[in-house]
Simulated scan of single mutants.
Amino acid sequence: MRTVRGKRMAAIGVTGAVALFVAACGEAPDSANEGGDAVAKDFKACMVTDTGGVEDRSFNASAWQGMNAAVEAEPAVEVHVKESGSEADYETNLTGFINEGCDLIVAVGGLMGEALTTVAADYPDQRFAIVDAYLPDSPNVFSMEFNTAQSSFLAGYLAAGHSKTGKVATYGGLKIPPVTIFMDGFAEGVAYYNETKDADVEVLGWNPETQNGSFADSFEDSGKGKSLTENFVSQGADIIFPVAGKTGMGTPTVTQGDDALDSIWVDLDGCESAAEYCEEFLTTSEKNIPDAVSEAILAARDGGPTDGHTVGTLENGGVSLSTLREDIDPELAAEIETVKEAIISGDIEIKSEVQPVAS
């Protein structure tokens, strides 16, 4: 057990949406949050998860939180979910919800882009939305993207400044842009720390120049996440940044056994989504999926445009670092706030080529 940790210090650009972690992130119901019995339901919002399901404590869980937040904001909304066991389930789940009369169908994850493009073309009168992809040629799809290179740049700077061994590491679930954008930002943040501090902190697991690195090839295999983490630790890394959904849960199981090791979580504040490991996380590189999904549902219910494109950034609160752990040096925390403002102003330019651009 760690002897110091468990309390958190002032937040660096924390979004309010993650304060409430919906209990429904447990077993996924066939239909959720019926709301008050006296409230007539007039809008049916349905969500198709990527693999990992609503219990992944990461991007699926955060989208499900957003679905339920829409019900909290407007009890006339009802929400339903179908979980994808594999990529082969995407089209089946999407069309299944069409047949069930959903007013809006939310696809979670960039991997679903191809399947949704096909289904949206076949059903042009059906409203859809997608998280982590932009489908400009689908006029009935509302797209939500997040520039997590920005928040992950801050996470990389933090890791470099907090590391005692001079080695930090990252790995991904799959080699796809919504994953590698985190890894790019993290590596660039470490490089910026090295440049400004005349340091030589090394990043294991990802090379942003060659776009090669370590991947579990799964968002569901925590055993593989544990194995990758143990390998990085054997090479001297003391801070690990998994970008791998449920696979990433293998990392805090390793760091929990050694006070010299730490991790940084992604997507949804680890101290909310994986509270039993809160002391292991220095912070979380968050993307505010809950607010984006909730707002998309409410806008669709109000008859808003069927298409559209939003990009979450540090400036608009769509991405952020969660509250920093109590033992982070206050001087380092202040530097991170300065770096954040420099990213927003454009004084620091992040190079990742997979950053989304607002249309």
Rank of each mutant, 00 (worst) to 15 (best):
E195A: 15
D200L: 10
A199D: 07
K197L: 09
D198G: 10
V203W: 13
F186W: 10
T196K: 14
V201E: 03
Y193R: 03
L174A: 12
I181G: 00
P178W: 04
G189P: 12
V190S: 04
V201I: 09
L174V: 13
A191Y: 05
P178E: 12
A191Q: 14
T196W: 03
A187C: 11
G189F: 06
I176P: 06
E188F: 12
L204H: 05
A191E: 12
P177F: 08
L174I: 14
V201N: 05
N194D: 15
I176R: 06
E195P: 00
M183D: 11
E188G: 14
G205P: 06
V179Q: 00
E195G: 07
F182P: 06
G189N: 10
G173Q: 04
A169C: 09
G185D: 10
F182M: 04
P177Q: 08
D200I: 08
P178Y: 10
I176E: 03
A199N: 09
A191W: 08
N207V: 02
G189R: 06
I176D: 02
D198N: 14
I181V: 10
V201L: 02
F186H: 05
D184F: 02
F182W: 06
T196A: 08
G173S: 02
A191C: 01
Y171L: 10
V179A: 09
Y171V: 10
I181R: 09
T170P: 08
E188P: 11
G173R: 04
Y192F: 12
L204T: 04
M183S: 13
V179P: 02
N194T: 13
I181D: 03
G172D: 15
Y192I: 02
A199R: 05
G173A: 05
E188T: 12
K197P: 08
K197T: 12
G185Y: 07
A187R: 05
E188N: 13
Y171F: 15
D200S: 15
I176V: 15
E202Y: 00
V201A: 05
D200M: 08
T180V: 13
K197D: 12
A169D: 10
V190Y: 00
V201F: 00
V203M: 09
T180Y: 04
F186V: 13
P178S: 15
A169M: 12
V179S: 01
G205I: 00
D184S: 10
P178F: 11
G172K: 05
L174P: 07
T196C: 06
I181S: 03
N207P: 07
W206S: 02
K175I: 11
Y192R: 13
G189K: 08
V179I: 15
T196P: 03
K175L: 09
I176W: 11
N207D: 15
N194E: 13
V203R: 01
P177H: 02
N194C: 14
E188W: 11
E188R: 10
D198K: 07
A187F: 04
T170I: 14
L204C: 07
A187G: 15
D184H: 08
A191R: 07
A199S: 14
A191H: 07
A169H: 11
Y192G: 00
L204A: 05
W206E: 03
T196Q: 14
K197E: 15
T170A: 15
N207L: 01
K197H: 14
I176M: 14
F186Q: 02
T196Y: 06
Y193P: 02
G205F: 01
Y192W: 12
N207E: 01
G189D: 04
G173V: 03
Y171K: 07
A191M: 01
G205R: 01
D200A: 15
K175Q: 13
